[in-house]
Nucleic acid binder design. Structure first.
Lengths: 303, 303
DNA sequence: ACGATTGATAGGGTTTCGCTATGGATCTTC
DNA sequence: GAAGATCCATAGCGAAACCCTATCAATCGT
């Protein structure tokens, strides 16, 4: 049996006429007759009761019409679904992110994506960086947002957005009065840092300090970046943090830009190199567009 | 989209290999590749992720596999159903019959048919003869069993079985002692008859009496043949009835054959000439086989 | 009774289909 | 590490399927 024969039969059954059906199908009448005959021969029963004046359905034909319509409908629905999945309009997207990124600028990216692909089911997993990489490799997540590019062979990265590293100090601290601070000035300060074992960002900041000529003096080391503000407020010293942290912590803390040469706290999209899902590719593409759009805005602002 | 392409894709998806799938489909590998490509082009998305070493499904491919299997299953199920209907193995059969036939030999015909086509839903409608014809014409029933052949142009008849007309008399009646009775001997008897307006059988019996040289003297006229035995037992006279009536009424009544030339009380299958349902045709055919089978038995018995 | 209409059949040209042969890439094996 | 094996893609050709026009047989309406 063939979908074409099915379509042909349904046309004849609905028109109750070979001639009219052929016209509707943009076909001449003879091949239509032949296809119906072939279908009937295959099914071993006649579907239409024809006199040379009118065409009626047999009981088998009635059943064939109902079932045939259902089949064509299901075919169409399957086509639509597959097309949608192929276009990345339907599917699932599992994202990994650390807390500081999740509560940072991620939301606007998610919102923008939701606007383009509202049917995609997004899940954001809050994960420590090491877990993020493992989750990507075992396909638990499709994309992870990280501060730093992992060196795993199967993973690729793409810049999601740029952020500066800023200095967080208690409002009472002498550096809080400064408009800008140079990195070298922090050599004598007590630092609250993230655990360098679990954080690319912490290692990167440490490297920047070393390049500036000093090794930060650690007063406290924490695992979760969200713990930093309260420790700063409590007087444990200063911290170099991504700018986005500033949005959630205002009381008792001041943030000051590092100048000149502020370290970058860039956030990257990390994903499997062999990723096939169009949902994922669309998300990455959108992130790129958002980035270039924003940098164009930034360029205008600078004018 | 084409069912063949669907079958081809499912084979490839299940085998995870073009070569193996081609083997399974009794096909060489190149056309298989081409068909899959055509399907992918039509859907505007790739369904398979191929390296030269392995074949994997994309998300769209996963969906296509599931939906495709469902479609093929539905196609097969539709084919089976249509075939069954075409062969008369599935469907409905509405029969019409008068009380005396319904409670007579009809049961064995129904039972025989149930054995051949157990899935056909049979309904027996008890109807007066005039209603039987109307029901056939407006397609309420497919077949009616009647004692007599209607003259309607759209209806056809076929002998279902042969029955004799026998004489019903009270056990105390002088004819009850006779081994056989001639029709002419009934000229002086009181007769209990069916209403000739509603019964072909009644009219037929009347004609037979007239041919035998007398017009029956009517003591009682009833509408329902089942009322006859009790009236005979009550002494209202004699009655000419189909032989099958004897099976349900023994007490106080005797049945005697009419000899020579017993009138026939044959029962006919009546149906629309343009009837298309294979269920109906199968039923009629089976009735014919049963009849010839029985007459062969009868012939043997006579040897 | 005759013209018009309907579905079936016949014959021919075009498209589609499937096959063999071959290429490019990767994995395995010695 | 190089040669062979394996896998999917491409090219070219013969065969089958497909659709077309022309025509026939049967029935309906005028």
């Amino acid at each position: 049996m063939d979908l074409r024969q099915l379509r042909y039969f349904i046309a004849v059954a609905e028109e109750r006429s070979f001639t009219l059906a052929a016209r509707r199908l943009n076909l001449s009448q003879p091949p239509l007759s032949q296809h119906i005959q072939a279908l009937e021969a295959e099914l071993g029963t006649s579907l239409l009761y024809r006199t040379s004046r009118k065409v009626e359905l047999t009981q088998a034909g009635e059943a064939m019409l109902l079932r045939g319509r259902a089949i064509l409908q299901q075919v169409k629905s399957a086509e639509d679904e597959v097309r949608s999945i192929g276009a990345g309009l339907i599917g699932t997207l599992d994202l990994g992110a650390t807390g500081s990124i999740l509560r940072g600028r991620l939301a606007e990216l998610l919102a923008a994506y939701r606007d383009v692909a509202p049917l995609v089911r997004m899940t954001v997993h809050e994960q420590a960086p090491a877990l993020q990489i493992a989750a990507l490799l075992n396909r638990t997540t499709n994309i992870s947002l990280m501060r730093g590019i992992p060196r795993e062979r199967d993973l690729t990265s793409k810049l999601a957005w740029r952020e500066e590293v800023v200095l967080a100090v208690p409002r009472t601290h002498h550096l809080a009065k400064r408009k800008r601070v140079a990195l070298g000035e922090l050599a004598s300060e007590d630092h609250v840092i993230l655990d360098p074992n679990s954080s690319d960002f912490a290692r990167y900041v440490q490297t920047c300090c070393v390049d500036a000529g000093f090794l930060p003096k650690v007063s406290q080391q924490v695992v979760d970046a969200q713990s930093i503000p309260s420790l700063i407020a409590a007087g444990f010293g200063v911290a170099l943090v991504p700018q986005s942290i500033a949005r959630f912590t205002t009381a008792d803390i001041a943030f000051r830009p590092i100048r000149p040469s502020p370290p970058a706290a860039d956030v990257f999209l990390v994903f499997r190199e062999d990723e096939t899902s169009m949902v994922v590719h669309n998300f990455i593409k959108l992130a790129g567009q958002l980035l270039s759009h924003r940098s164009r805005l930034g360029a205008r602002r600078r004018d």
